[in-house]
Design a protein around this nucleic acid. Structure first.
Lengths: 283, 283
DNA sequence: TCAAAAGTGTTTTAATTACACCCATGG
DNA sequence: CCATGGGTGTAATTAAAACACTTTTGA
């Protein structure tokens, strides 16, 4: 990990030769080295996590945002985020790994269900992305079913599930919904990732409750991709894809608002990847 | 970016209210805030980059590794890596962005051609991944054509393009080629990413020189995927995929070793994504 | 002239699409 | 009993896989 094979600052003092020349791995020598090591001899950097939590509510794809109550970028909408706890301190225990940090900052905003899809999106570290200092931010994407309204949290004036279509990924400068820092870019990357992963993975079920209808599943695709799909062919294709969904044997409560047959309920199947994939370019 | 909307340590002192209540964005207030800001009030973390540079040489897929000349993990093979330069200092100027840091540590090992594919793989930050301290490492993947032998560099006893099949991604514990830290996991993630991206992107050409034959392109797929492909159908499919390759009008120097027709030379086309994709499951 | 590699034709098979139609339910 | 949404049948289209075959070159 870490400094790998080279890297300035990666070693302290001259190399400790132990008579083996080119140097094969020696566990005793390593133990002596670590006993002498000073962890504060390195140039520090601030590391944060930002979470793009996506859901679908009322047919619209939405992202969890909070309006910043403090400087910098006070008043702007921003992704939930926070510093990674590198070690235990007054604020609490250390985050064992980066996903723990992501879930920690997210649960400050909203309760989470037992099953949640969390994946790393990417890391953003441009030198000018935060006006205060060099900050390197690891972004995560969360896909969740429709959740209760969020609470605002300590540094947030308000928090809400905002339709991402209102944000104009990357553009939207000067609008009411302009995002703080480079969060518009991070959101744009998350949306593109989600759109693309619906094609070749079974991820769409992460947006739904444990039991759902094929029509609800189609609603996920239509909301995320932004266009309608052929209902009959979609239905058949889902059922023909091994492991995508499993029949629960139950039926949904009622048909559509103005009548209609009651739909069968399915649960997510075991498959992670779809063979064959669903392609986006279909009507 | 950075601390997003919440995050402990994200603010210093009480919020500065300016009489606007819920707080809309105010550029003047932000300017005053930044003038007072102390960048050293944060818990630091070490941030590094590690680079998985992949190529194909003599029909084998290979990764650039160096043998560590210093503790910790002295004698083990490791990925090229180094600390991100958060700000300018005695070691040199700051890295403007993370990809700059990745290219910097890579050019310490090998000269690079003009065109190079660099993409971020992911960030690794488990609390125990480095025995010295909490280190968060941003991993990059580079795909390169066959390059000259690498130079060893300051902290490296030797450097080489090692066939990744000899490394057993993630396993290989106790073998001569066991990797340092969590580099086996990072390499495994890179290999899986490369295998998967060959399916639906035109990335295979990144492993080849500017002009190449369809057979050489097939060799890339066969090396990375680890099985042979049907030559005739592969040929046709490549040419049928719009924008994958363009005919140069030239022919390769000679046919195969023991005779054979001279192959046409192609260059990479403009397309980034393949429609339709090439699927891995084909003989 | 023979073997090796490049490249084309053609048949078989499977997946996708489009459109027609039946089923179940609420008003 | 009819509008609405769920669900199935089936033919037309298109892409993939398998296999046979021609072309070009080096030894």
């Amino acid at each position: 990990m870490s400094e790998g094979i080279d890297g300035e600052g990666a070693t302290q003092g001259p190399p400790r030769e132990t008579g083996q020349g080119a140097g094969w791995y020696d566990a005793d020598d390593e133990r002596r080295f670590l006993a002498d090591y000073d962890p504060n001899a390195f140039a520090p950097a601030a590391v944060t996590v930002d979470v793009v939590a996506l859901t679908i509510r009322a047919g619209l794809p939405r992202v969890l945002l909070g309006r910043r109550a403090r400087q910098p970028q006070r008043g702007r909408w921003a992704l939930p985020g926070g510093f990674v706890r590198a070690r235990a301190g007054s604020a609490g225990p250390a985050d064992p790994d980066l996903p723990d940090a992501a879930l920690r900052v997210l649960t400050e905003k909203t309760p989470l269900p037992a099953e949640i899809h969390l994946e790393q999106l990417g890391t953003y570290g441009a030198i000018d992305r935060d006006p205060r200092m060099r900050v390197i931010s690891v972004a995560y994407m969360v896909l969740a079913p429709d959740l209760p309204d969020p609470h605002s949290g300590r540094d947030t004036a308000e928090a809400a599930w905002v339709p991402w279509t209102a944000l104009g990924h990357g553009e939207g400068a000067g609008t009411e919904h302009e995002l703080a820092f480079d969060h518009a870019r991070i959101l744009g990357d998350a949306v593109e990732r989600a759109r693309s992963k619906l094609e070749y993975t079974a991820l769409a079920t992460a947006f739904l409750p444990p039991a759902f209808t094929i029509t609800a599943l189609r609603g996920v695709y239509e909301a995320v991709w932004g266009h309608t799909l052929h209902a009959a062919n979609f239905h058949r294709k889902i059922l023909a894809t091994p492991g995508f969904v499993e029949d629960t044997g139950e039926l949904a409560e009622r048909g559509g608002a103005g009548g209609g047959r009651r739909a069968r309920l399915y649960r997510a199947g075991g498959a992670a990847l779809l063979h064959p994939p669903l392609l986006r370019g279909s009507p």
